[in-house]
Each structure stands twice: as structure tokens, then as C-alpha cells.
Simulated scan of single mutants.
Amino acid sequence: MVRFGYTLMTEQAGPRELVRFAAEAERAGFDFEVMSDHYFPWLDEQGHAPNAWSVLGAVTQATQRVDLMTYVTCPIMRYHPAVVAQQAATVQLLSDNRFTLGLGAGENLNEHVIGRGWPPVNIRHEMLAEAIQVIGALFDGGYVNYSGKHFRVDSAKIWDQPDLRVPVATAVSGAQSVERFAPLSDAMIAVEPRAELCQGWDAVRHGESAKIGQLPVSWDPDRGTAVRRAHEQFRWFAGGWKVNAELPGPAGFAAATQFVTEDDVAENIPCGPDVAPMVAAAKPFWEAGFTHLALVQIGGEHQDGFFEFARDRLLPALNEAAN
């Protein structure tokens, strides 16, 4: 059974609005909610970047049913993995065991702020593997000492442990990252509906586990308005993740996407008031083997109408098509 979620985009709304959106998304019938964890928006037009963990704490109290997840937190520079483990355990307690810790190797956009430079991707993957080991050891309980190539931990302990261990989901993009992170993780995260990722992940883990994808949409009663908004706020996607992970700030994304047109965006993101294009865009995910799909409604000021649309039309259509 495929579950459908809602994305709390910290890049396009402030903290109070995100907490309200979380409650509205639950009422609309979404199964789960994921939250981005950024220090910067991709583009100046998005205009926001509140602290995800503070907002998550509030979201746990504004919701009752939906599962929650970071999508994703980078535990290799801006956060030390020992701090991430403590944050995750606390959110698990506050949410009554509804939380999954989504992790990834990060983006220069968010990690450059600490002034340590930006390592190449192979080093970032080494760091992420170590970080997951540290986090897992802390979730196991007791005092943890760790001395690795990239991280050290000196007698750390999580004092407030949830009764359900926090599941860890890790972002992957190819066979190499699947091989490295599937043995260390409970679930897979990917943004492209590629069957080989799902098949490879389950093969390494010797069984099926959750695979969580994400799909941007731009709903609006007027298609032209939806396309313009998607171009204004989401044209950053055009470079692909290999490029996007390296750019240092919104000015870089603006320069890299200056020649992306509204037509380019409309070809890749379903825009407008119709259900059918959104279902068609989502279909490759469940056909590839994804078990969860989180939708992004583009535009922080255009969520309320989307919730009504999702409740009455989109979610019923998605569930009928997928399940």
C-alpha cells in the first residue's frame, strides 16, 4: 500500500505558518509529513529558512495522527551527529513515536555557514556513514565513545530515550550509495523514481523496507498562475542534485537557472487545477517500488486551497490509482 504525505517546506514559509500547515495537512487526510532542514532557501524568492527542529517540536503538539520525518537532515558539519541523535530522540518522545530521522550527505547551500569548506562527495559519504554509526550507538543507550576518521565522541549519552527506537532513513542516488547506506538504515529516501534504487536497496537489506520519494506540484485554479509560481520558486531543481549540492547560496542558484523558462518548469512539474497530471507524475514512483510519496505544494502563501483540493480530489485519486 502506497502512503501519501505532505512536505513542510521551511524554504517557503515561516515557523508559525508551517505549524498551521502541519495541522491542516493532517485534517486533509495526508498519511505523513516530512520537513526540510535548511539554513538557506534555494532562491531569494522563497524567502524563508526557520530552524527545522524547533518547528518540529511545535508540530508534534499540533498533530496527533500523521507520522513525521526530516527530509533531510545533514549530520556531518552544521550538526554533530551526537546532537542530531539527541534532537531525534526528543522529537520521538514529543510525537509519541511518530518520528523517522531522515538523513543525507547535505548541500553546500546549508553547510558552508560554519566556514569549514565543502568536502567532495566521497568524503561526505564517508562522514555520513560514520555519523549514522554514532547516531545508532546513541540510540542503543548507555555511554558512547567513538573515534573515527571524521568524528569523535567523548562519553555521550541520551538521557531521555523513547521506548521506540527512532527509525533512520537515508538518502541515496545510485548503486554506490545504496551499497553503503542500506546496511546502516531502516528506510530509503530518493527523489527520482528509479526502480533500480528500490530493487538494489531491498537486495542489500534482504527484504522489503520503506522507500520514500518526493514530488513537487503547483496547484492553482489558474494554470498560468501555477506555472509562473513554479518557475519563480522552483526553477532551482533544473541543475540536478549533483550540481545543486555544490552551489553555495541563492545567488548561485539564480545564476545557474537564469535561462530556465516557464515552459521548462511546466514540462517537469504538474501545474494547475487538474488531478490527472499530478497522478500521472506520481505513478512512476509506485511503479518503481516506492512505498511513500511526499507531495510539495509550491508557494508558501498558496497552501489553504491546496489542502481542500487534496482532501476532496487529489488524495482520493492518488489512492485509487496506487492502491
Score class of each variant (00 low, 15 high):
Ala156Pro: 13
Ala105Met: 06
Ala88Pro: 07
Ala322Arg: 14
Leu109Cys: 01
Tyr71Ala: 01
Arg78Asn: 11
Tyr146Trp: 13
Asn122Lys: 14
Phe30Ala: 07
Val19Asp: 03
Ala226Glu: 01
Ala226Val: 01
Asp140Trp: 11
Val191Pro: 00
Asp312Asn: 09
His231Val: 04
Glu246Thr: 15
Trp118Asp: 00
His80Tyr: 11
Met9Pro: 06
Pro119Tyr: 12
Ala226Lys: 03
Thr100His: 08
His125Val: 00
Ala321Ile: 05
Asp264Gln: 12
Leu103Glu: 00
Asp67His: 10
Val275Trp: 13
Asp220His: 15
Arg205Phe: 00
Ala226Leu: 03
Ala195Lys: 14
Ile114Ala: 13
Tyr146Ala: 04
Phe307Leu: 05
Leu109Phe: 00
Gly14Leu: 04
Met1Pro: 01
Ile189Cys: 04
Leu314Gly: 02
Asn108Asp: 06
Glu17Met: 13
Thr170Met: 03
Val260Asp: 10
Gln87Thr: 05
Phe234Met: 10
Phe4Val: 03
Asp220Ile: 00
Phe99Ser: 01
Gln133Ser: 13
Gly115Glu: 05
Glu196Cys: 13
Glu33Asn: 10
Gly136Leu: 07
Glu45Tyr: 06
Leu138Met: 15
Ala317Thr: 05
Arg311His: 14
Arg116Asn: 09
Arg235Gln: 07
Ala322Asn: 10
Leu138Ala: 00
Gly272Ile: 01
Val66Arg: 09
Met278Thr: 04
Ile123Pro: 01
Glu267Ala: 15
Asp220Ser: 15
Glu45Asp: 10
Pro273Ser: 06
Thr261Met: 08
Pro277Thr: 02
Gln12Met: 14
Lys157Ser: 09
Ala238Trp: 10
Glu246Pro: 08
Val227Gly: 07
Val2Arg: 13
Phe181Glu: 03
Gly5Glu: 01
Leu164Tyr: 12
Asp264Ser: 12
Ala245Met: 14
Trp219Glu: 04
Gly240Ala: 09
Phe30Val: 06
Ala282His: 02
Phe32Glu: 08
Ile158Met: 07
Glu320Phe: 10
Cys74Gln: 11
Ala281Leu: 11
Arg205Glu: 10
Ala129Val: 07
Ala131Gln: 07
Glu26Phe: 13
Ala210Ile: 02
Glu320Ala: 14
Ala266Met: 11
Ala203Asp: 09
Gly115His: 15
Gly252Leu: 03
Ser147Phe: 07
Asp222Met: 10
Asn323Val: 08
Gln86Asp: 09
Val204Met: 10
Gly174Ala: 12
Gly300Ala: 15
Glu45Gly: 11
Arg65Gly: 05
Pro273Phe: 09
Gln64Ser: 15
Gln61Met: 12
Phe285Met: 08
Ala82Phe: 03
Asn51Asp: 13
Val34Thr: 15
Ser54Cys: 14
Arg223Gln: 15
Ile158Asn: 08
Val265Tyr: 06
Asp96Thr: 11
Gly136His: 08
Asn97Asp: 15
Trp241Gly: 01
Asn323Asp: 12
Glu208Pro: 10
Asn51Thr: 06
Phe21Thr: 05
Arg194Ala: 12
Val243Asp: 13
Leu295Pro: 03
Ala203Val: 00
Ala238Thr: 06
Phe99Trp: 09
Tyr143His: 12
Pro216Ala: 11
Ala49Asp: 12
Val59Ser: 03
Gln303Asn: 09
Met35Asp: 05
Lys157Asp: 02
Val113Tyr: 10
Glu24Val: 04
Leu103His: 12
Ala49Phe: 04
Ala190Tyr: 09
